[in-house]
Design a protein around this nucleic acid. Structure first.
Lengths: 236, 236
DNA sequence: CATCCAGTAGTGGTTCAGCCAGTCAACCAG
DNA sequence: CTGGTTGACTGGCTGAACCACTACTGGATG
């Protein structure tokens, strides 16, 4: 690590933020769950050593984030187990357990295939075909076709027209890329993959959701099986 | 207003919320844009007729929502043009995205049910049963059983043992809670819901992934159908 | 004249003491 | 058993006060 590595991110100046941090700690330390009651404002003020006004600011923030429910005269109650909105990025990074990613991918992409089959436009079909063409060319030239593979799945995602699922896909894009690379290095794998992609595209073109789901599932299970055999023969 | 039609869903009692409303009005009325300066806390307190503490609570809320930037000693500045996170346009947009959420939920929860059926332990079964018992009790008492509903689905998520999918579920937990509340207010809905949950639990207990998927899908489609009929008869 | 730099008014940050207004449980009366 | 009363507890809000920081002003300096 060199000189300017990490600036001290400036002091967390606002008091209410520190209060929120302490509340989070307390919740996890005490093992509180959804529905449990937090200490009263007066008690928190005394134990944390700040004024009630600051405690209240912190609690109001937690309230607007939906993490806590305030009952006038009745106390403050948890609405979640963690009290931590915890950024997804760090979690995905920490939880890069592969089988989890593969299961998640199957959950997301089979649904995407289903929706794509129902909603695809002519433009979507054109993009799917373009991706397949590109894949054929790459493979014929002896390449793995990773780029085209990604392009194809991105086109399916676009055709599904669901921003939320698209966002979830983005969040595991990194791990998918890894597993794609692994998978495509198996002998004859690119050619087999091309066939599976064509089957998916065909189902979407014919607007056949069930077949699209089946084709996508078959494709993903092939990918994951290879992956498991290569990396985790003993896994669960 | 007839008898049970619609109770006013509890008053908008909190002062800081009214302050936020007034601030929004002021911003639009005065035509303030991003970068402009808001009046000082003391001036706002005097003009709106509340204490500075309440003004500050409101401003802190706006800060954590990223709508405003506070500079110690320098004043408070707009970071957006409107100060309204959702004027009607975006609110409509949010409602329009509800189908996205429902599709995502089906993608995630059917997979969770499948995994749960394969991986559940005796403890998981016990928690599912406990949630069902609680649901029966609540419903028998005339309640909707929202809490138990959430508890049940949380138990399924736990039993699936996939942190990534669990994280995705957390991200849409808020919208799921909304749709749950809507759905369970339909006549006879809680009773029907109980039956569907029992079917899911039974499949998981028998370690029958396919049936678990089918049961979960049936349950979710009921929920989403009701929702669409109630709120968006004309949707897509 | 241009520059620099205190001084100062003004701003947000926080505290404190106090009162108001709900909630809840224990208790009592019917 | 039901319904009302009471009192302790909890969150909601206020007002005055002080601290920490910023920004502007106006005079001193080169």
């Amino acid at each position: 690590m060199s000189v300017s590595d990490s600036f001290r991110p400036a002091v967390r100046s606002r008091l209410y933020e520190q209060v929120i941090d302490q509340l989070r700690e307390h919740v996890t330390a005490a093992g509180l769950k959804s529905g449990d009651k937090l200490p009263s404002e007066r008690e928190l003020a005394e134990r944390i050593g700040v004024s009630r006004a600051s405690i209240k600011q912190a609690i109001v923030v937690l309230e607007v984030q939906g993490l806590v429910e305030i009952r006038h005269g009745g106390g403050t109650y948890l609405r979640t187990d963690s009290l931590s909105p915890e950024p997804i990025a760090t979690l995905v990074e920490r939880k890069r357990r592969l089988p989890d990613v593969l299961d998640a991918r199957e959950a997301l992409e089979t649904k995407l295939a289903e929706l794509a089959a129902m909603r695809r436009t002519e433009e979507d079909i054109a993009e799917l075909d373009a991706a397949l063409d590109s894949m054929r060319t790459e493979i014929a030239a002896g390449a793995l076709g990773e780029e085209s593979d990604h392009r194809f799945h991105a086109a399916v995602t676009t055709a599904a027209r669901n921003d939320l699922l698209a966002e979830f896909m983005r969040e595991i894009a990194g791990q998918i890329a890894e597993s794609r690379h692994e998978s495509l290095q198996q002998p004859d794998r690119p050619q087999q993959s091309l066939g599976q992609h064509q089957r998916i595209a065909e189902a979407i073109r014919r607007q056949d959701p069930e077949e699209a789901v089946a084709a996508m599932r078959a494709h993903l299970r092939t990918v994951s099986r290879v992956r498991l055999l290569t990396w985790h023969p003993e896994e669960s």
